[in-house]
Amino acid sequence: MPQIDQMFEIWSSQLFWLAVIFGLVFFVVGKGMVPKVTSTVDARDTQIASDLAAAKAARDAADEQEEAWRTRENANRESAQAIVGEAKARAQAATEARLAEAQGGIDARLAEAEARIAASRDAAAAEIETVAVDAAQDIVRQFAHVSVDEAAARAAVQEAMTRGQ
């Protein structure tokens, strides 16, 4: 087993070269290169963490703005609905006023027409009475050759008309 057989002749050489070469490895690789690699990894980790934080902040800001927009939008909608309601109420009031006005006009014209009809009817009735009085006087004169004065004839006619009604 050379490890044991050669031990006494090689140990100093092994120790020396291991010290030299492992020393080189330690100082060049371990002390020189490893910190650079770990600093790169650390820099990347912090970069990723900060990017994530920035993205989160941006999303929060967006949420906040959306919330504000939503509040504003709701307020706008409410005011719009108020305006619409007001306009509707105003339109309804105007319509009702005009309807009332039109109704008043119609009522007045109806009353006027009725008054006119009543007047016509009275006039017609008076006419008929006059005609009937004349006719009664003529009828009485021709058939009974009795001359009746107008007042008597009128009274008779009025009586007959009142009864006949």
Binding site: E9, S12, S13, Q14, F16, W17, L18, I21, F22
Partner: peptide, 11 residues
């Protein structure tokens, strides 16, 4: 002895 051996070479 500090001879440069095959062991040292492979180190």
């Amino acid at each position: 002895n500090l001879a440069f051996t095959n062991s040292a070479l492979w180190m």
